[in-house]
Amino acid sequence: MPKPIAQDAQGQVQAWIILQRDLEKAPNTVAAYARGITDFTSFCRERGIDPLDVSKSTIAAYLGDLRARPPGGGREGRADDESSPSTSPSNASLRHRLTIVRLFYDHLVEEGLRTTNPVPRGRRGVARHRGERGLVPVHRPLPWIPSEAQWRAVLDAARTDPVRNRLMLALAYDCALRREELCALEASDIDPAHRLVTIRAETTKTKVGRVVPYSAVTGDLLAAYLRERRALGRARGRLFLSTSPRNRGRPIGKWTWSKVVRALGHRADAPRLGTHTMRHLCLTDLARVGWDIHEIAQFAGHRSVQSTLLYIHLSARDLSAKFAATAAELHKARLAVIAGVAR
């Protein structure tokens, strides 16, 4: 029978969760931290381990327990059948769970209840050669970028959408907006006279504000939407308002926009379309037309060009055309001998 969690450990868990709330973390973040650390302490209780006195081996065992579960599965949903590796959760999910545990033990170290953190941090550069690696490797798959035909299908499917949704799609692409940035736009952030959008620092992931332009097409959609918006409410506030009978005139949330994009992708036969696709496509298009990487980083609101490089995904056709125009003859000359071609 599982041993109860020591009272001291349970108190520290509750204190840490309260601390996250008092630090004004987003409610969803606090809830995720609470679920994650509660799951870990349940794992410890099943094995009779005091959560205040775990070792790296306990963390490794917990990681194995997580891998044995189906995606999204709780402790009651573990999959013990090793013949079904395809049901394992993603590396991103595993890293998220371990990050929660690591933050909890950072707190314990700061409080003087432990001297070390049992969850190893992944390090870059020289430190990685010293064996200082994270328990779960980072996988960075290429972002999905729609082809010209796929993007045209998305636009064709959007033609019948309300003008608000079409404007949001256009702004998301024109300005490379994150979902949160788009939904947080206020009417006062728009400068129609100069076709500029101000993305306020407090609405961004990196807390870096920026001002970016939008196209004439988007300007026409904006003018049409503002006429509709005046019927929903005269207050400046949020730009995008709900038209549903239940929430009429209230700002729409990021999940509403996610549902709109998901439905649009379904109608366009582009199931991989997401709210971030327009941002990826915009930054890639800027690279296609010759923008400097630093200019693209500033446009995107990235602190580092390394982040920008992860977003830019030139298609095989783009790279093939550039290769043919700039490097094909050089490569041919260097490899001529092994092909039996006389130099």
Rank of each mutant, 00 (worst) to 15 (best):
T203D: 15
S215W: 14
R121W: 01
L185W: 08
R47I: 10
E46G: 02
I252H: 12
R114N: 01
P162N: 12
E186F: 02
M168C: 11
R262W: 01
D189C: 09
F299I: 07
A223H: 11
P71R: 15
I296R: 06
D81Y: 08
D8C: 13
A79W: 08
D106R: 11
K254T: 15
H276I: 06
P85K: 13
G77L: 05
A61I: 06
F323K: 02
D65W: 12
D65G: 02
W151R: 13
P89G: 07
P143G: 04
L310G: 13
R238Q: 15
D156N: 03
P251E: 11
T41G: 02
R159I: 00
E181Y: 10
A216I: 12
A324R: 07
Q298C: 02
C282P: 01
R159P: 00
Y62W: 13
G340T: 09
R234W: 04
E82H: 08
A92P: 01
G301C: 06
I293P: 05
R234Q: 09
S320H: 07
V13T: 01
I5E: 12
P71I: 07
V13R: 15
W255H: 12
R200A: 10
R121Q: 05
K56H: 11
R47W: 10
S242T: 02
A158E: 03
I37Y: 13
L182D: 09
F104N: 07
A339C: 00
H313L: 00
T284S: 12
S258H: 11
K25V: 00
G125R: 04
C175W: 03
A92T: 10
D220A: 15
E228P: 06
L319K: 03
E228K: 14
A79R: 13
S57R: 02
E76H: 03
Q14P: 01
W291Q: 09
V154I: 13
R248M: 07
A6V: 09
D53S: 10
E202F: 07
T204N: 09
G112R: 01
G233M: 03
T204Q: 09
R250W: 02
D189N: 08
A235D: 15
G340V: 04
V208Y: 03
K25I: 00
G340C: 02
R35C: 02
Q306Y: 09
P70T: 13
A157H: 01
P120A: 05
G253D: 15
L142M: 10
L98F: 02
D174C: 14
S307R: 05
R164G: 08
